[in-house]
């Protein structure tokens, strides 16, 4: 049987779909195309959707271009650049007046950085990819727009 590293050198193209968890109460999905330059280096284009319910309602979609460097047979580090669009919705109940509720909605677009650590195994043409920790950090925000809605209830 061939090792994952040997298969990366032979199979130039890969497509993977994944599901993950976002702390504290979120989840995400990712669709990735990869191009293997050689055993060590892979260039990836990934579309990602992340959503979280806590501490605020938040959803974001991003497209990332990444370089993934394999240190051995399966272990990798990845770094990339991304373009992200997101919406954050939050509700504040004022402590001094329980009938006042402030709702805010922020829409943003941002360029960001993306880092990841994980392992990818290949058996024949099958791929199993486990990214242990991924970080996406928006850095440069473009036209962030905030809408505040002040609601009187009761």
């Amino acid at each position: 049987a061939q090792t994952s590293a040997q298969l990366r050198a032979q199979q130039k193209h890969s497509i993977t779909a994944g599901l993950g968890f976002v702390p504290l109460a979120g989840a995400g999905g990712i669709l990735t195309y990869g191009f293997s330059v050689n055993q060590e280096l892979e260039i990836q284009l990934a579309a990602q959707l992340l959503a979280s319910a806590f501490p605020a309602s938040w959803i974001s979609g991003s497209v990332n271009l990444k370089a993934r460097y394999y240190l051995g047979n399966a272990f990798y580090l990845s770094a990339g650049l991304g373009m992200e669009k997101g919406t954050i919705k939050d509700t504040f109940i004022l402590p001094n007046n329980k009938v006042d509720v402030i709702k805010s909605e922020t829409q943003y677009s941002a360029f960001g950085l993306d880092f990841g650590v994980g392992q990818q195994w290949r058996w024949g043409s099958f791929i199993l990819d486990l990214e242990y920790v991924g970080v996406h950090s928006p850095l440069v925000f473009l036209n962030p727009r905030s809408v505040g809605v002040d609601k009187q209830t009761g």
Binding site: T16, A17, G18, G20, I127, L130, E131, Y132, G134, S137
Partner: peptide
Amino acid sequence: VELRFVMLSVGGAF
């Protein structure tokens, strides 16, 4: 900063 923990993906290579 958005973190994601344990992203499990499956797919194919060609």
